[in-house]
Design a protein around this nucleic acid. Structure first.
Lengths: 143, 143
DNA sequence: TTAGAATCAGTTGTATACAATTAAATTATA
DNA sequence: TATAATTTAATTGTATACAACTGATTCTAA
């Protein structure tokens, strides 16, 4: 087995991507727990803080998640009072998700968590910008 | 809400990290399925192809996974005949995981899968090296 | 205009992740 | 050396992810 063997864990790009993603989320978890949020619920709220309301399909496109993940997730968030769900009037296949006052109330706490996490990141501004660009290049989205 | 609001999904670094990791693993999944492997089982095998044998603790350190994930995972891999597990003679708290001939037999197929996936990555060599370096910088490991 | 195709959210089944706890074994120390 | 502290893997409980499928609704084209 040579040092440049592509099947060595240390020669693979997908592994640090996988490990790093989990490590960062593990960092968020105990902080978000104080707000009764998981990481996935947090990213749902970020879309809703921006949009106010959004249907499940659009939410899935924004988050790269399907209804198999979102349906039970949103059900739980509704139960906790962070969001409400209602069928669209025009097209009853569509479910519209909206943030509640309680959900909006978490925004300032989330800002604090984000800045705490950001200050832990051992990258300078330029490195962070580069990482951001490369990740979105793989994701295949300019935005 | 201003464009540089840190709580906008598009201004966060952790979100593309999370989404990108899942996207790449989603790419691997149907290919690995042909070998009766999941992505996590695949990375376990990569360690074993390199080491032959390794205990659960070390495996967890290499993969950033704990026994809560590894124990049931290894149990399933043993059932499928890819690995064997045995208690250490010297310290019976320790479980040593070893790859079987059947597990080693997957290696050449895995090489093909890796090269297929690598050729899909829309990054040039230098970009891939940069991404690799930044991810390991966050993971806090030189290797 | 109406049958078939497509869309949308939800459900089902499987496989992680991970915090917290447990149980067994080993190590350290009073 | 006997006991407390530590280590190691397994277990428990909760929350995703996601492929495959389902059921209801809407669209579309002959």
């Amino acid at each position: 087995m040579s040092d440049d063997d592509p099947l060595l864990l240390r020669n693979q790009l997908c592994f640090p991507l996988y490990a790093c993603s989990r490590q960062v989320i593990r960092g968020y978890t105990p902080l978000l727990e104080k707000l009764d949020l998981t990481y996935t619920q947090y990213v749902v709220l970020m879309v809703l803080w921006e949009e106010g309301s959004v249907n499940v399909k659009t939410l899935g496109e924004r988050l790269f998640l399907d209804s198999g993940t979102l349906s039970p997730l949103l059900k739980g968030m509704e139960k906790k009072g962070f969001i409400v769900r209602e069928r669209s009037e025009e097209d009853s296949r569509v479910v519209i998700v909206s943030v509640t006052d309680k959900g909006n109330g978490l925004r300032s706490d989330a800002e604090k968590i984000h800045s705490d996490m950001a200050s832990c990141l051992p990258l300078d501004k330029e490195e962070a910008a580069t990482l951001y660009r490369l990740l979105y290049k793989i994701l295949g989205r300019s935005l």
